[in-house]
């Protein structure tokens, strides 16, 4: 049976990425109102990354390890687990902390971001990095699913 937890984990993570794309857009040309919205979007992003961590972690520990990992490792593309699951599960740990940092920086800088272009650029770069890592998580998730599918197809055919 396919666990629905992986879908929930992916959805939470992807909405968190959208929240940080929203932060990025608000900070491109900030006003007081846009900075307020950026803070709200960052709070949403932080909460969703933590939820994605908990749901994904529960799935990984209680389902993936017993049901999916052995299938992928015996299949035609074991690197899907050996490289991409291993990389994904560890780099993911950076996201909640980077998102808290971004929220803290926006909160602390506040209205000053309207005039302080250099700090704004650095926060924009940090936000862009969060989005990039988030997208990398999605791509690695796809590769891991492909590894599981390839293994199941090899068993059936």
């Amino acid at each position: 049976m396919v666990s629905s937890l992986i879908g929930i984990h992916a959805a939470l993570g992807e909405i968190a990425i959208f929240a940080f794309i929203w932060v990025f857009i608000e900070l491109l040309n900030p006003s007081e109102q846009r900075i307020k919205r950026a803070k709200k979007a960052a709070v949403i992003g932080v909460i969703l990354f933590f939820m994605s961590w908990i749901v994904g972690g529960y799935y990984y520990v209680n389902y993936y390890g017993k049901n999916v990992k052995p299938i992928i490792k015996e299949g035609p593309v074991p690197w899907a687990h050996e490289i991409f699951t291993e990389t994904k599960e560890h780099i993911f740990l950076f996201l909640p902390f980077l998102s808290i940092l971004t929220l803290g920086l926006i909160h602390k800088s506040g209205k000053a971001l309207i005039k302080d272009k250099k700090t704004r650029s650095s926060i924009l770069t940090l936000t862009f990095l969060i989005v990039l890592i988030g997208l990398a998580m999605a791509v690695m998730g796809y590769l891991i699913s492909t590894g599981a599918r390839a293994a199941l197809e090899a068993k059936l055919l």
Binding site: D116, K118, T119, S122, L126
Partner: peptide, 17 residues
């Protein structure tokens, strides 16, 4: 101001990843 330090965190994250 902390722009340099923010770029340091970015560099640390990229290198660690």
């Amino acid at each position: 101001e902390c722009k340099k330090e923010i770029y340091s965190v970015i560099a640390i994250t990229i290198v660690s990843s």
